[in-house]
């Protein structure tokens, strides 16, 4: 499990979605520095969510003899439904405010992709493979 790389990718994805949605509501060139600065809080948010909600599922399940595919098949559907429910409730409670929509949509998409990156087998570069075979 490459947690750091996963958090990094999730943060970039979350940041992109968050600002794409936000800037469609109100675009201003002065916001651009904040786009890059926002990577810091987004990184912390992603790290907390991934470390507290996704990683424990993998750690506990691996110790019980599950492989990654089995973990995904068993727990991902429940996780996706719960996250979808929470994010929809969040958007509903904030009366579809632009900031809330961008926050919850980016949280939903990046957590689901984070699962995918954890389960996805790491591809070996063909050149590396040839060198290894030699």
């Amino acid at each position: 499990m490459n947690i750091l790389s996963n958090i990094g990718k999730s943060s970039l994805l979350a940041m992109s979605i968050f600002w794409v949605i936000n800037l469609t509501y109100d675009f201003n060139w002065d916001y651009i520095p904040f786009v890059f600065l926002s990577l810091i809080p987004i990184y912390f948010c992603c790290a907390i969510v991934i470390l507290l909600t996704i990683c424990p599922i993998f750690w506990f399940s691996v110790s019980e003899g599950f492989n990654r595919q089995q973990i995904f098949k068993t727990y991902f559907p429940i996780y996706a439904i719960i996250i979808f429910g929470l994010c929809s409730y969040g958007i509903y409670k904030t009366k579809t405010d632009a900031f809330a929509i961008s926050f919850f949509v980016s949280a939903y998409i990046s957590t689901l992709h984070s699962w995918m990156w954890f389960v996805k087998p790491k591809k070996v570069n063909q050149n590396e493979q040839t060198t290894l075979c030699k």
Partner: peptide
């Protein structure tokens, strides 16, 4: 359960299974 899961995360599920089943075919695409 299947209907809700499909409606909210069917794309990601299929994407992963595609990787699992057709790894060779999709690696180029990825």
């Amino acid at each position: 359960y299947n209907g809700i899961y499909t409606s909210i995360a069917g794309y990601i599920h299929r994407n992963l299974y595609k990787i699992d089943n057709e790894e060779k075919e999709t690696s180029k695409k990825d």
